[in-house]
Structure formats: C-alpha cells, structure tokens
Amino acid sequence: MTTYHRENNLDLSDQNKKAWDSLYASTEDLIWGSQPVGFIDIFMPYIKNKLSRDPRILDAGAGEGRNLPQLLTLSDHIVACDASEHALDKIPAPLRSLLKTVICDLEAIPLDDGFFDFILLADVVETLPDPRPVLHELHRLLKPGGLLLCNIPGFEDSIADIDMEAIGENQYLYQGRYFYRFVYQDEAIALLESCGFQMIHHQLCSWVEAAHPSFRSDAHTHSSYVFLVEKAG
C-alpha cells in the first residue's frame, strides 16, 4: 500500500500549484479543450436520478471549465473552484456568467459544511502530493447522502510514467514540474473509505484525449478507475 506523508509534501505541493498555474498562463488556448472528460457521460444518468431538484454542485479543480456544460444540465447552482486564478479566468465568458467561481486551495474551500449535493473531482487526485486533506474537505462540504464523482488512475493508464521522472513510490514528475501519482484499485478504494466515503459504484473507463497545447503533444488514451461515492446520511 502507498503511504501518504503530508509533512514531506508541503513544499512539493506549493511547487506543484505554481507549475499548474504557470501552465494555464502560458497560452491563451484551452489546455484541456472544450469537451468534457470522457467518463462523465457514463455516470450522468445515475447522478440525475439520485439528485434532488435544484441541487448545489461543485466542480472542484475546475480548471478552464471543460466539464461545466455537463454540470449545468443538472442545476443552475454551480460553483467552480480552483487554486489557479489563470485557469478560472479562461472559463469562457458565457459559461462564467452562469456560475460562481472561487479561487482557493482545494483543502480549504471557503463554504459552509454540507453545502453541496454533488461534487465532481475530475483528473485531480493523481496530481495531488497528498490527496487526503482535499478529500476530507470535500466530505465536509457534502450534505449527508451527497455524491462525489472522481477518477483515480493507476498503471493501466497509457500515460503512467511516460516521460516522467520517478521521485518516490508510485510518484513522478512530468516534464520535471507536474506531480503525478498512480495507485492500484484497492489503494484508491481504501483512500476514499478512509476519508469517510461509502462506495456506490466504480468501474474502469477509457477515453481518447486530443493533444493538450503546451503540455502533451499527441492524442492519447486514458484508462482510469472512476468512483461514485456518497457521504453517509
């Protein structure tokens, strides 16, 4: 099992946040494009059936907002947060006018306990030197029975350790700057359960991504375990 040592990751976390913010500032193009991440459509029918009317929804680590059009089909009450001001500034203006944006660290989101019915955490966990504080924070923000949808990739992902420098157990730097961690399925489940979530459903999903400007030059396929979990009522 991978051991997460928060005390050894503080400097790395700060450097990592600066690297991602610098990436978003490096080009006017959308790094991740405008299409939603490939696994959301698979889970949308269940989420729609589970949510109450007019739910409050958080896109945690929203980046440039690629997933916001999907979330806006669920509710008019959307909050998008990210540690990168440059990322949130790149959310297209028509989308940004429909929601609230919050610049903050994901482990310290300035909103009340039990505020949200549903949280999306897409392509984030693997980029966190220590994901536990973030997952605990999202657990705090969910109502009892609230849902979290997140992906946690392992070594089945085609990008795992490609052009990456190993810096620890299952820990890497991509291009010498961007932190990644890949874990096995049982480790991912144990992580979520240790942060207070109960498993509803999980499955391995695969999807194709176009090249990402200033980040990854070729189209590539992602394979990642995706988890739908809830906060116990």
Score class of each variant (00 low, 15 high):
residue 124 V to R: 01
residue 118 F to T: 02
residue 229 V to Q: 03
residue 83 A to N: 08
residue 70 Q to N: 06
residue 219 A to K: 11
residue 48 K to T: 14
residue 127 T to D: 07
residue 195 C to Q: 07
residue 154 G to K: 03
residue 189 I to N: 08
residue 187 E to D: 15
residue 35 Q to K: 15
residue 154 G to S: 08
residue 140 R to D: 06
residue 177 R to P: 06
residue 32 W to K: 06
residue 66 R to L: 04
residue 44 M to A: 03
residue 10 L to F: 15
residue 183 V to P: 01
residue 93 A to D: 15
residue 13 S to N: 10
residue 1 M to P: 09
residue 44 M to D: 02
residue 86 H to C: 07
residue 54 D to T: 10
residue 109 I to S: 04
residue 124 V to M: 00
residue 25 A to V: 08
residue 16 N to L: 07
residue 198 Q to V: 10
residue 196 G to Y: 08
residue 126 E to W: 07
residue 106 L to H: 02
residue 79 V to P: 01
residue 54 D to Y: 08
residue 27 T to Q: 12
residue 174 Y to N: 09
residue 3 T to E: 14
residue 146 G to P: 03
residue 219 A to E: 12
residue 22 S to W: 07
residue 197 F to A: 02
residue 176 G to D: 07
residue 119 I to V: 13
residue 60 A to S: 13
residue 108 A to Q: 15
residue 30 L to D: 09
residue 105 D to A: 11
residue 14 D to H: 13
residue 152 I to Q: 03
residue 178 Y to N: 09
residue 17 K to W: 09
residue 198 Q to W: 07
residue 57 I to T: 01
residue 218 D to P: 03
residue 131 P to V: 02
residue 65 G to H: 02
residue 195 C to S: 12
residue 110 P to A: 09
residue 52 S to R: 14
residue 199 M to W: 07
residue 26 S to N: 10
residue 14 D to N: 12
residue 140 R to C: 05
residue 65 G to K: 01
residue 101 T to Y: 01
residue 98 L to P: 00
residue 106 L to D: 00
residue 77 H to Q: 14
residue 81 C to N: 11
residue 215 F to C: 06
residue 163 D to E: 15
residue 66 R to T: 02
residue 110 P to F: 06
residue 203 Q to W: 10
residue 63 G to K: 03
residue 58 L to A: 00
residue 68 L to H: 00
residue 115 F to M: 15
residue 212 H to V: 08
